[in-house]
Each structure stands twice: as C-alpha cells, then as structure tokens.
Nucleic acid binder design. Structure first.
Lengths: 151, 151
DNA sequence: CTGCGCCTTCCCATCGTTGGAAGGTCAAGC
DNA sequence: GCTTGACCTTCCAACGATGGGAAGGCGCAG
C-alpha cells in the first residue's frame, strides 16, 4: 500500500501521516527503491487506532501514550482508564466553559429586539463597565465527576 | 496610560494588545515622542469590549465585526443578534461533539476493570476494525436551535 | 549617574492541519 | 519508446491566539 491508499483506508490525509511519522507518533514506513512509503496491514491497524483516538479528541501526545500502552501487553488497564477518564474530565470542563458562554449570549440575545432599530443590549453590555451577565445562581447542582460515575 | 496600565486594566496582555493593533482589530495607539504607546479612556472601553467578546468565545474576526457594529450608531440590532445567535449555534455544535466523545469514552471506560490486569476494552475497541462505540439511538430528542429558543 | 522597571521591535515556538511549489516515479495508452 | 496524468517525494509557509525571550531605548527615583 502506498500512502494514498492508506490515507483513503484510514481517513487520515497523506500530509498528516507524513507528519505523524516525522514527529515520531508512528514508526517510519519502509520505502521502495524510489523512495515511496509502503504500508503493511499492521500499519493500517495502527493508523486506524490513531484515527479513532483523534476522533475522541485526544491530543497527539495522549495518542502517543495510548499507543505505547496498546503495544505493551503487560500494561495495567488502570493506566488506560486513568488517561481516558482524565480526558473525559477535560472534555467536561471544556463543555462547561462553552455552556457558560452560550448561556450568557442567549441571555443577552433574548433582550435584543433583533429588528432594524439600532439599540442592542448585547453591544451595550459588552461595552459597559460592569461584568458581563453574572448568571443567576441556581441551587448547588454540583457536577458529578467522570471518575465517580464510572468506577 | 501606557500599555502596561491598560493591560492591567483590561486583563489583556501587552503582547496581545500589540498584536491586536498589528492585525488591525484596534486602531494604532498614539505615541509619545519616544515611541511609547499611549491609551485613552476610549481605548480602554474598546479593549474592555474586546476582552468580553473574547471571553464569550468569539474569534478575532467576529470581534472585528462586532466592533464595527458597536461603532456604527445606525446598525440594526438584528445584525448583532444574528452574529450572537450564530455563535451560540457554533458553541452548541462544539458542545455536542464534545459530548459525543465524552459519552463514548465513558461507555468504553465503564467496561474496563481499571486494575492491574492488562486486558482493556478501551484499547481493544480503538484497535479493532469496527467503528468506535455506536451510541444507542435514543428517541428523537431533537435539539432546539438557538434561534427558536430565543426569538 | 546609576539602577530598576517599563517600553520598543524582532524572531521563535506552540498545536494540528492544510496549501502550494518543484521535482521524481509509475502505469496506461498510443 | 514516448507522452500523459496520477501519484509520490521534500521543503516552506500559513492559519489563530498566545507566550517567551533577546537586544536595546526610556523614565524616574535615589
């Protein structure tokens, strides 16, 4: 398989495959006499792994760690789970941040006429001296952490 | 006010203020004879606006658009609302993506012992040929769009 | 005048990804 | 055998927003 074939098969662009090789995430492919990269079914499997981890939002560094664990038959499953749940926590933190932005914006937008009139509380608030939309405190609805929910 | 003062006052680093000037987001500051940037209360207000928009997750390009509308006293509030709700939609899309990643990972993790044993369904699934964790279809719980909820 | 803290510009790095340019290779069709 | 087009190679640059640091100038207090 040439790089184009494996790119199609994994959904990772040829550019990225070369990049992953360059940065050490994957092992350098063997080459033909003329310098073309050649890939085996084993490489295909590895790159599929990478693709899926990437789809789950892992960084390249984390994928590197996961690959190492993947290849190590003596790993403890706890190590893997720790990475996974740590990542879940990061994802949830990010979601929380986005939610706060979104809520604030929706709140501002709900007070905006949205017609041809120029007055707009969204802009007014952004330009004012006070802090933007302090959200009304709801009752202590504490977030459960990934660790608690799963283990 | 020198750049350090306004940086403290807005919470934007001096580096970023220079960057915003360089890229045209804000107008070039006036200078002292010796080349120091000098800022007015007006600049302070603008930069506070920028800061808040940034905190709401707008890109620099979007902030640029918002600033233009902010300065234009004849704008239609509909234009502002459109940008805001468009951004809400983007935020919600992102949240949805993160949620899917998170759910998938939690699902995988819930099947992992997380002890010293090496077998781990997280890695096994990532390395397998099939797609990762097709989520169980729930009843048609269609997402309401920002536009519908607010207007 | 010295010293310290601020300011200036300039370049580099990050992270994951895409784009393009310039050139070599391969296989099919004539 | 030669042309053509699709592929491959490397190298360089850019994105977006930010931080780090170097080298040198400025301002003010002691």
């Amino acid at each position: 398989m040439n790089i184009g074939d494996i790119a199609k098969a994994t959904g990772i662009s040829a550019k990225m495959i070369r990049y992953y090789e360059e940065t050490g995430l994957i092992r350098p492919a063997t080459r033909t006499l003329s310098g073309y990269r050649v890939y085996s079914d084993n490489d295909l499997q590895t790159l599929r792994f990478v693709r899926r981890a990437r789809d789950l939002g892992f960084t390249v560094k984390q994928i590197d760690d996961l690959l190492t664990l993947w290849r190590d038959r003596t790993r403890a499953s706890a190590s893997v789970k720790e990475i996974a749940l740590g990542h879940v926590a990061a994802l949830e933190k990010k979601m929380q941040e986005l939610k706060e932005m979104s809520d604030t914006l929706l709140h501002l937008a709900s007070h905006c006429h949205g017609d041809t009139r120029p007055d707009c509380p969204i802009l007014t608030t952004l330009g004012s001296t006070e802090a933007v939309a302090p959200l009304p405190r709801t009752r202590d609805r504490r977030k459960t952490r990934a660790f608690d929910r799963v283990r």
